[in-house]
Nucleic acid binder design. Structure first.
Lengths: 110, 110
DNA sequence: TTTGTCAAGGACAATCTTTGTCCAAAGGTA
DNA sequence: TACCTTTGGACAAAGATTGTCCTTGACAAA
């Protein structure tokens, strides 16, 4: 798969599947879920569980951690869009992550 | 309030309240919620609704949009932390936001 | 046409999560 | 003691999500 192409989690899964020339049914069966559910996941109208992501990664033989990252970044992207939040909200979030990490690692802090 | 200080949504609300020398009860009463709930919001163990954020902004006479941004960035920060995701997940999210925005704005696209 | 496969999407029960309140307890102050 | 503040547990009510089943439409092959 083209690594430079930006695509949502679902789109990426669909691409993987189409490249490998599988039908939804074939893949869903292997993963152990309903055909319809996999279709929804590919269209981003159902969120996959961690388990399902693992199965998908295993099925297509791709890195699981990376696929999870794709999923989480999707969730963040959708949140920003649906809240109509400014892009720079991400910058604020980044600062907070560092702040919260440092906070946690200070000994004697709750 | 010091704009350079990074703090979570709840911490910021608490600071505002303490600076203005109000008790939880006094503020909660005005906002129309339980004292305990406001306390939890300040400790980030309950999420405020949009409505509550509006009331809080009004009460302390601060910019509502900005407070909402603080809230959303909090949510993103907590998500990254609890998923133990890489910081660069945010970069991926940013690309996806742009991608999704451009996708939506192309005429003749679903 | 008919048959078969595929994907899209609606409906819905089951399940999981979150919300908001009430209450009890701990700590402080007068 | 009496009073006030904050914390946090428990829990019903409300809300959101999941996964499945089923129907529909599109397309291709026989």
């Amino acid at each position: 798969m083209n690594k430079n192409k930006v695509a949502t989690f679902g789109e990426q899964v669909r691409l993987l599947r189409e490249e490998a020339k599988f039908s939804l049914r074939e893949v869903a069966e292997q993963i152990g879920i309903d055909t319809s559910l996999l279709g929804k996941i590919e269209r981003n109208d159902r969120q996959p569980t961690k388990e399902q992501i693992k199965f998908i990664a295993k099925f297509f033989n791709i890195d699981e951690k990376n696929l999870i990252k794709e999923f989480i970044s999707d969730q963040i992207a959708y949140k920003i869009l649906e809240e109509e939040a400014d892009l720079d909200t991400l910058k604020v979030a980044e600062k907070k992550i560092q702040y919260l990490k440092s906070k946690k690692s200070v000994p004697g802090n709750p």
